[in-house]
């Protein structure tokens, strides 16, 4: 990529610099400026409006002693762990099935990916209806004669997060499948032939040869799923609104509620800073592995 024409005089590139102003402003003012601003103000006791009264870590103390936040974190951990494992597993298995030189591949792929085009609000509302205990799956099974059948995740605080997980997986696995399929298509046909000649069973070829070769795709998929997990918000708002009670709260919703509903800006800033910290913990090692040393 030898794209650069080296500028000898600064004004020779003036147009490019002018054209890049929106990008520069976005990068410096919004992304860096906004982030630093939020982190700094998370140490203040801002309520309705931001104030420069610094109170040290008081907001973080309050945050970590708030049961709503603790539940949010716990939910995020459960949702995150299951969503990561199942997205990768289902995505890979579906991609491997589609990769068997089958007929109607395009049709299958179109069906498996269409939920991804829908918003989380639509997804959440559709599953809210299917999981409705009075009319949905539970009632249908009971009508079949199994009277004591109970499956009402959205109304049971113990398992509500799994109800959200069902909807989240339905929406998101198609994308992972597509990524995996692209990865599988990138694998040399000769690898399969060689494995076949050596008499290695298919599942072993997948696990010990193909998956290690798809490392890059897997890492991309994991980063993708992980950053999606941290942002999960609309889905919860649509499906449960955080309920029953506060049993399906998530961090992104905690931030929104603190900032715009309970006029508790400091809490919102502290919570969003924690979210940022989580992302940093995930992204930095990945960036280091991917670009470590290569970055100019």
């Amino acid at each position: 990529m030898a794209a650069a024409t080296k500028p000898s005089r600064w004004h020779r590139n003036l147009n490019a610099k002018l054209a890049a102003i929106p990008m520069i402003v976005t990068a410096l003012v919004v992304f860096i400026g906004g982030t630093v601003w939020t982190v700094v103000y998370s140490f203040t006791n801002s309520k309705l409006l931001p104030r420069e009264k610094f109170v040290g870590l008081a907001q973080y103390d309050r945050l970590w002693s708030s049961s709503k936040w603790l539940i949010s974190i716990e939910n995020l951990a459960i949702y995150g762990a299951f969503s990561l494992v199942f997205s990768l597993l289902i995505g890979f298995v579906l991609a491997a099935l589609l990769d068997q030189k089958i007929r109607f591949e395009d049709t299958f792929r179109t069906i498996l990916l269409y939920p991804f085009a829908l918003s989380f609000i639509v997804t959440g509302l559709a599953w809210q209806w299917i999981l409705n205990p009075d009319f949905g799956v539970q009632q249908v099974v009971r009508n079949l004669g199994w009277e004591s059948f109970a499956f009402d995740p959205l109304y049971n605080p113990e398992i509500v997060i799994y109800g959200i997980l069902i909807a989240g997986l339905w929406q998101g696995t198609g994308l992972i499948m597509c990524l995996m399929l692209a990865g599988l298509r990138g694998i040399d046909e000769d690898i399969w032939k060689a494995a076949k000649i050596d008499g290695i069973p298919m599942w072993k070829t997948y696990i010990f040869i193909v998956i290690p070769m798809m490392r890059g795709i897997f890492i991309t998929a994991i980063v993708l799923i992980a950053s999606g997990i941290i942002k999960v918000y609309d889905l919860v708002v649509a499906q449960t609104g955080g309920g029953p009670g506060i049993s399906s709260e998530v961090p992104a919703k905690y931030v929104y509620d603190a900032m715009f509903l309970s006029q508790n800006l400091g809490q919102g800033f502290a919570a969003s800073t924690m979210m940022l910290l989580t992302v940093v913990i995930i992204v930095v090692p990945w960036a280091y592995l991917e670009f470590g040393g290569k970055r100019k």
Partner: peptide
């Protein structure tokens, strides 16, 4: 096509910024 000094830096910031949770930038905006 028209790289200038610092253009790659701004671009890197932009891409890294895509990973920052929106919640962090909501209120400054």
């Amino acid at each position: 096509n028209w790289r200038f000094k610092g253009s790659e830096t701004f671009f890197t910031i932009l891409i890294v910024g895509a990973f920052i949770p929106y919640q962090v930038m909501i209120y400054p905006i």
